[in-house]
């Protein structure tokens, strides 16, 4: 049984380049990143197929955030390269959207919700250009999509955690990108927002966008994502959720730390054997 499952995983087909889009949204080759001489990511090799919602899962300190930052060329890398849409990532940044962690900014900053979402348009504007009426229109639409339109003129410190996360999502939507990186968009949000975000992500995916989401909650990861990337300094597994989400690979990813998660893992294990999968 075990060996069979492993072989299934091993035989996960490398995603074929789609005929229509004809371009791979993200290709990471042999990426190694180190902080203070200690490697944080090691030999990452990933080819991401288009139109997928992908969860990046792994224990704390596994380098999840580092991976997406390095993939966008925001960190110095020790080796390897990253291509997005067939070009070096620095050249396709306008086609990449990003949702950083909510705690990474100062929410006392004197800007309104509208101002923040407008920042999503800045990447398209270029030097010295100011937002046009079209940009404003896009921003309002994006705010509407996350149901934050009534708050457009609010100062951002007067928002709840879930609302702040919606603003960040609206900003990413305003980027009108084809590839999205999201760093823990579900951290500290209410259940309603979480559901709304999932719907939004699925809609985006259905439009053919590729979305990589750093996520730390295993049970929900199984439900939310089409594909999972199990990460612990290196890629432990990358494939369809139903094939990758199994006891052995989770054990390999979380290592000794799986004791904390053993209940989850046991439940998964039991369900899987119960289903005869």
């Amino acid at each position: 049984m075990d060996s069979k499952r492993t072989s299934e995983v091993l035989s996960v087909p490398t995603p074929q380049p789609p005929e229509s889009a004809a371009e791979v949204p993200l290709e990471i080759h042999d990426l190694t990143v180190s902080y203070h001489k200690k490697p944080v990511l090691w030999g990452i090799d990933v080819v991401v197929p288009p139109g997928k919602l992908i969860g990046i899962v792994g224990p704390n300190g596994a380098g999840k955030s580092t991976l997406i930052k390095a993939a966008m060329g925001m960190l110095p890398v020790s080796s390897g390269w990253v291509k997005a849409f067939g070009k070096p990532v620095k050249e396709s940044l306008t086609r990449i959207g990003y949702v950083p962690q909510r705690e990474s900014v100062d929410w006392d900053f004197p800007v309104s919700v509208m101002d923040v979402v407008m920042m999503g348009r800045y990447g398209h504007l270029g030097l010295l250009r100011r937002p046009s009426r079209h940009d404003r229109q896009v921003v309002l639409e994006c705010l509407d999509k996350v149901k934050m339109l009534p708050y457009a003129n609010r100062q951002i410190s007067n928002l709840s955690g879930g609302q702040q996360q919606r603003v960040f999502l609206a900003r990413a939507l305003a980027q009108e990108s084809d590839l999205y990186f999201m760093d823990e968009p579900f951290a500290g949000v209410d259940a309603a927002t979480e559901a709304a975000i999932v719907t939004l992500l699925h809609n985006l995916r259905d439009k053919g966008k590729t979305i990589l989401v750093v996520h730390h909650d295993l049970p929900s990861a199984r439900q939310y994502f089409d594909m999972l990337l199990l990460l612990n300094m290196r890629v432990v597994a990358f494939g369809e959720t139903k094939t990758v989400f199994n006891y052995d690979l989770l054990q390999a990813t979380y290592g000794g730390r799986l004791t904390i998660l053993s209940e989850v893992a046991d439940a998964v294990h039991a369900r899987e054997s119960g289903n005869g999968r």
Partner: peptide, 20 residues
Amino acid sequence: FYKEFLVTSFDSDFARSCGF
């Protein structure tokens, strides 16, 4: 450079991801 100053001051990670 208002928008450049604004976006880098508010969220420098995001600004870098936009290519600033």
